[in-house]
Design a protein around this nucleic acid. Structure first.
Lengths: 259, 259
DNA sequence: CGCCACTTTGAATTAGCTCAAATTCCGTGG
DNA sequence: CCACGGAATTTGAGCTAATTCAAAGTGGCG
């Protein structure tokens, strides 16, 4: 577990080597890949503690005192918002390179649960250490701000999706978003494995699990997706653009309303 | 919408402030009011340019190159998200002390329109100047991060509201949120003036303007609100807690679903 | 093999939408 | 000051997308 004192000992550009993993990850590092660059920067500058996670593990919990941000190095997480009256709402999904925990900054405690959807690894980024590191490497501040900015924009898109699309279009848009997210991370996108149950998807998308199921069946009937044999969580997307097209087409013909 | 994350920190009874001279604002400044403190800090450290805005004025527009953040010193703004296929979605409302423009950081251009709902004033905070100022005054970074964090939490609450509440409860929650927002800023809350048309509210809340109107009529019939004579935009809220109670009560009895 | 959780599909119900008509408000010009 | 016209709002009636309730079907795993 790296302490602040240790952290400083790494000269910028020198990576703290971990036996086994570091070499492999450096091999995988392609310059120009913003996500990999960010991970690389964080590793070099902060040598973050790594924490293995498995499906269902809680990275942080609502109400817990805030002190760390987290960056997802592999796997998938869902962010679950909780209301005082007991409602639960999946409000975001996180992929490799995404940051978790920004919601805790304002009042020094997290306002959501962050739960792993799969085996993976998060890096622990103590907030104070990050701020301290920004003095030497302003790039750290830049990547953090970009991540926060992106999160704000992303949640606005979610809200727009829920407010303006039909259920079936929302499901299609969700699949498109998932495919795009993993494509941007260099993973194959033609065949995706959803890490969520129908109930979780429905919760995230603001519809019942039955409606999710019906929408998926309909999308399959329309050839926009295919179920990979054995297991209804593996889905083939022959053409992501076709999915996008479906979403656009399913809009009301005249969406021009606001002033 | 429920903005749980915003609830803490602010001491009620803080000064309601009007745009005006620095001297008058200093007189009105009450220590312990986080919003006033932030404005004070920004004024002292950055002496931001002030920009008067009137209803309909665009503070920034989607696609425009990012270089400034803005802080609302008075008035109200809506944030409108735009999709490539022409949908418009009001995704946030901004009050005195709120920051605008975070969405522009990630890709160096704004992704939304920010539009004034009323006469007011924004302060222009050049992002680079802000970062530079943070070296001398780390508190600047703190308030900025808190604002971003709050915005993330707030949008998650909006998403939860849209996904889990009935239309009528959403309208009630919106009124509660508006009342609470201005209460926290020291303004009277028993009688509020909505700055939005039924169509704008409906867009923000994910329903048609007719449903907004019907919901308001029903809430009035149930004595949870009253229309102030002459003008359907002035609303009296006899008891904010009663509104909150209505929202909670209108939940499905057994909201326990996820896993 | 058999249980259990998840998923699919159907049928009936309903919340909210669409379409339409009346009403109110407000600014503008006479 | 009042009349007029357009825009916003309200309200009603019918419709539809999505929900609820229910029953089968499927797969994973001890």
């Amino acid at each position: 577990m790296p302490h602040l004192a240790e952290m400083r000992t790494f000269a910028p550009g020198a990576s703290p080597r971990q036996p086994g993993t570091a070499a492999r990850e450096n091999l995988l590092h392609a310059p120009g890949d913003a996500i990999a660059d960010t991970l690389q920067l964080l590793k070099e500058q902060l040598a973050p503690q790594r924490r293995a996670i498995r499906e269902g593990d809680v990275v942080y919990r609502a109400g817990e005192a805030f002190s760390n941000l987290y960056v997802l190095n592999s796997g998938y997480c869902k962010i679950v918002n909780l209301s005082v009256d007991g409602r639960e709402q999946v409000v975001a999904l996180k992929f490799r390179g995404d940051w978790l925990g920004f919601d805790g900054i304002a009042d020094q405690q997290y306002t959501c649960d962050a739960v792993a959807l799969d085996t993976g690894e998060v890096w622990v980024i103590p907030y104070q250490a990050l701020l301290a590191g920004c003095v030497a490497r302003p790039a750290l501040l830049t990547v953090m701000h970009e991540a926060m900015s992106r999160e704000i924009a992303s949640e606005r898109d979610s809200l727009m999706s829920v407010c303006t699309l039909t259920a079936e279009a929302r499901v299609a848009d969700f699949l498109r978003y998932w495919a795009e997210s993993i494509a941007r991370r260099g993973m194959r996108t033609d065949r995706i494995t959803l890490r969520m149950s129908r109930a979780e998807m429905g919760n995230y998308l603001g519809m019942t699990l039955e409606t999710v199921s019906r929408s998926l069946s309909r999308l399959a009937r329309e050839q926009l997706i295919q179920f990979v044999e054995k297991g209804r969580r593996d889905i083939r997307i022959p053409c992501v653009e076709a999915l996008q097209g479906f979403v656009s087409r399913s809009l009301a013909p005249a969406p021009r309303v606001l002033q």
